[in-house]
Amino acid sequence: MSISKWLGATLGWSFGGPIGAILGFALGSLVDGFSNGGIKVNQGNFGAPTQSRTRSGDFEVSLLILAAVVIKADGSSDKRELDYVRAQFVGMYGKERANHAFKLFKSISQQNNIPVRDVCLQIKQMMDHPSRLQLLHFLFGIAKADGNVSTAEVNVIHTISNYLGIRSLDFESIKAMFYNSSDNAYKILEIDKSATTEEIKKAYRNMAKKYHPDKVIHLGPEHQKGAEEKFRQVQEAYDQLQKERGF
Rank of each mutant, 00 (worst) to 15 (best):
R55I: 13
G33Y: 00
L63Q: 15
L63S: 14
I71Y: 09
F89A: 12
K72M: 08
R53N: 15
Q51V: 14
D32E: 07
G44W: 13
L63A: 08
G16E: 14
L27Y: 02
L27E: 10
D78W: 01
S14W: 01
S62I: 09
V31A: 10
I22F: 05
S62C: 07
S76E: 08
K40Y: 03
M92W: 14
G24T: 05
F15D: 01
I71C: 05
A48C: 05
G20L: 09
I39N: 03
V70C: 05
N45E: 06
S77T: 09
N42D: 08
K79T: 13
S76N: 12
S29N: 08
G16T: 10
S29E: 07
R55G: 08
D58F: 13
Y93R: 11
D83E: 13
L82A: 15
G44A: 04
G47Q: 04
G17Q: 06
F59G: 03
E81M: 01
L30D: 03
F59K: 02
S52R: 12
D58G: 05
S77N: 12
I19D: 06
L63D: 15
N45H: 08
A48N: 14
P49L: 00
V69C: 03
I19C: 10
G47M: 05
G33T: 04
S35Q: 04
D58W: 05
D32C: 03
Q43I: 15
S56G: 10
N45C: 09
M92N: 10
L64R: 11
F34Y: 14
A67K: 03
S62V: 11
D74H: 00
G37Y: 02
F34K: 00
T50R: 14
D32H: 13
K72I: 02
A26Q: 01
A68G: 06
N42R: 13
K72D: 10
V69L: 04
G44N: 04
P49K: 02
G38V: 04
A21E: 13
F89M: 15
S29P: 13
G16I: 01
R53H: 07
V31M: 04
S52N: 14
S52V: 14
G28Y: 04
I71W: 03
G47P: 00
I22Q: 03
D74N: 14
D58N: 01
S62K: 07
D58T: 09
E81L: 05
K79R: 06
V41H: 01
F34W: 07
A73H: 09
K72G: 08
Q43W: 00
V70T: 01
A87G: 11
A68D: 02
R53F: 14
E81D: 02
I22S: 00
A87M: 08
L30S: 04
D83I: 12
S76R: 12
L66Q: 08
L82G: 06
S52H: 10
R86D: 09
G37T: 07
K40Q: 09
R80P: 15
R86G: 07
K79F: 11
